[in-house]
Design a protein around this nucleic acid. Structure first.
Lengths: 249, 249
DNA sequence: AGTATAAATCGTCAGTTGACGACTTGTTGG
DNA sequence: CCAACAAGTCGTCAACTGACGATTTATACT
């Protein structure tokens, strides 16, 4: 009955396989056959804080993989707990999803990025390369992108504001730096300005989407792709600003 | 697998035969009550071809709006028919989804685009503007993008090949034209070459995603955005090719 | 009109799925 | 060692959902 109840008949592909790694067959928790070096080897019962954290982390992976419509029973199985226990930590599935969004989507953004992008002691091209390397490791991950996309499609409106606000700030920073380095006067229209920055950020976002969502083959190394896009952006910056109506100085 | 349910007329042969009375009644139920005789305004019973077409069209809208996990009962209601009738035209929900994918995702691509993009009697910038204007009206629609995204996330692998193959062809065409107009020698590596073209196509794809999936405010007119991105691409083309390792001539 | 055909509906079944009351059991402090 | 607290599980309900046999009925053709 228990023990991998997901029959292969699942037509939607929700199958939660390979979630074993539990091995919770009694065997006490002491005199571990496996030191594991973990301060908290494997508690049969966890503190509410740890359990909650574990559920949220597992849920981020789970829902990013199977979508927000995936079932709570599958999530419970992935956590190695009963489905009922989820409702001890979250009143409803939707409340759980809200928490997942906050911790896994809005959480990872770093404030340092603004400072690093504005550090004019380094060439802008280098700054951009460094920034995007980190951005790919933090934001443009399979988990983040899929969760964000599922949430966007579901129109849950979860926190589109926070995310978009931060990204807009990044775009403006990049624009200010590029304009400064190339001595170009930017258009006064903020929306137009954002659109120019999107030629870079959107292209790299789409590259990430291609990798993690469309699952296109991606033979070219990530660093090379980033370098190409940044070169393209800086090389075409003057032309883009001109097309947007700004006057080059 | 697309077999007809019982012993219905296998419409495979008809394809595009009956185009008559294609008057889409939308969803309005305001027309006559029971027409009964001689009244062609609203048929109580439709021909299998028309009904099938109607279901597929409605299904594309429906699933693009609510996702591929939306229920067949909802679709039936949207079509104004009983849920059971769906199974007279499609053996399973999955078979229906396959057909939707074929007709609404793979279908809209136009072969003319290749010819138009390669017409060197017109400046490339103009060709690209014309091409993307059409591409936005045909492919970068809310319906297409959402369906494609849902399908990609579900990993149904439906027909990623066809779509990606066509897009790759478009990318190569654009690259060949840009290289010719700017007298630049392209890198031999196809993957690298595609990546350069993606700086344009990916950026515009992402713009469309922003509009229809993320639902960002989009105050800048579409034509302006397209113009900016194309200017950016052509202006930075040489730099991008150089970054990719190609040698400018 | 009358009848054959098939377009369309009704009713229902079996497996899901979010939610939760009631019960079990590991852990802690005395 | 043991009682009390709470972490955790069991079983179940009601609504949902894909699928389909049985039945009704609009339409075309005598």
């Amino acid at each position: 009955m228990h023990d991998t109840p997901d029959s292969e008949a699942s037509d939607q592909g929700y199958a939660v396989k390979a979630q074993s790694t539990k091995l919770r067959t009694g065997a006490g928790k002491k005199s571990g056959t496996k030191p594991a070096k973990r301060a908290k080897p494997e508690q049969v019962r966890m503190s509410p804080q740890d359990r909650r954290r574990q559920i949220l982390d597992e849920a981020a992976d789970f829902f990013s993989q199977f979508g927000l419509t995936a079932q709570t029973r599958g999530l419970a199985a992935a956590c190695g707990i009963s489905q009922r226990l989820l409702y001890r930590y979250f009143p409803t599935k939707e409340a759980l999803l809200d928490e997942v969004y906050k911790s896994a989507i809005a959480g990872p953004f770093k404030a340092v990025w603004f400072a690093e992008l504005a550090d004019r002691s380094i060439p802008l091209e280098s700054r951009l390369i460094i920034f995007y390397r980190d951005y790919f490791a933090t934001i443009f991950t399979s988990r983040w992108l899929r969760l964000f996309m599922y949430a966007s499609l579901a129109d849950i409106g979860m926190a589109p504001n926070y995310t978009s606000t931060v990204v807009i700030q990044l775009l403006e920073t990049i624009m200010a730096e590029a304009a400064h380095e190339q001595s170009i006067k930017l258009p006064a229209d903020k929306d137009l300005l954002h659109e120019i920055a999107w030629t870079l950020h959107g292209a790299l976002s789409h590259y990430a989407i291609r990798r993690h969502l469309y699952r296109f083959d991606q033979p070219v190394p990530e660093d090379t792709v980033v370098a190409i896009h940044i070169a393209q952006f800086l090389g075409g910056f003057r032309a883009a600003v001109a097309a947007a109506g700004g006057k080059p100085v």
